[in-house]
């Protein structure tokens, strides 16, 4: 934590223009307050409670739970994703408000892990969603999960945690990849139409 603070200060000194300072400040607030949507997709769900409770106390770092995707900043995908789950995860991710981040826990979202030969799980999550931080391990310890959050914070502060922008810019690629696995059971159009248009706003 101290380390991070020092890094922040060093960064701040390097900034030149006032707009850069504003951006830096906004990023600082974003990184200090992370509303986490813990989607217990698999085994990793068991290490989320220790992370947020008394022993490891993620709230020290500004990480707290959110109930619905509308309120959340980061979705924590804990473990392997069955195809059925992936659909819900994409749905949940698209409902979140930008800027939004994805943390994937465990080996399974990286390469399939234990279930590399299973017929019902996806093997590589970042084909379907922009993953900002992956925490490897089966399953990652709470310390590792916290380390993942620290990495995410660092990324946010540097302004590099822009998975959401990547998803928006490369939506066709992601949707095609999703289509490969869902086939004709893709999510209905209204859930993601705005990615293909400007999106109405007022």
């Amino acid at each position: 934590m101290d380390n991070l603070n020092k890094k922040d200060k060093a960064q701040l000194k390097e900034l030149k223009s006032p707009m850069a300072v504003v951006d830096w400040a906004v990023n600082w607030f974003r990184k200090q307050s992370i509303f986490m949507l813990a989607y217990g997709t698999g085994c990793g769900a068991i290490e989320i409670p220790p992370t947020v409770t008394a022993r490891y106390d993620a709230e020290r770092f500004g990480v707290r739970g959110a109930a619905t995707p509308r309120q959340a900043d980061v979705i924590v995908l804990s473990g392997y994703l069955a195809v059925k789950t992936l659909k819900r995860v994409i749905r949940t991710y698209e409902q979140m408000q930008e800027p939004k981040y994805v943390i994937a826990l465990g080996s399974c979202p990286i390469n399939g892990g234990m279930y590399w030969d299973s017929y019902n799980t996806i093997k590589q999550l970042d084909r379907y969603l922009p993953v900002d931080v992956t925490v490897a391990g089966c399953m990652p310890r709470p310390e590792a999960v916290l380390e993942g959050f620290m990495a995410l914070k660092d990324k946010i502060q540097r302004g590099e945690a822009e998975g959401a922008r990547d998803y928006r810019d490369n939506i066709e690629k992601y949707k095609n990849n999703q289509k490969e696995i869902f086939g004709d059971k893709m999510l209905p159009g209204y859930t993601c139409d705005w990615y293909f248009s400007d999106g109405g706003s007022f």
Binding site: F29, S33, Q97
Partner: peptide
């Protein structure tokens, strides 16, 4: 447990206003 810093609520609040979009 230790808990968040005292000004955590302010940070949360400002962060919410700093979101890039809203439903």
């Amino acid at each position: 447990r230790v808990g968040p810093p005292l000004w955590q609520n302010v940070i949360d609040n400002i962060k919410l206003f700093a979101k890039r979009e809203a439903p």
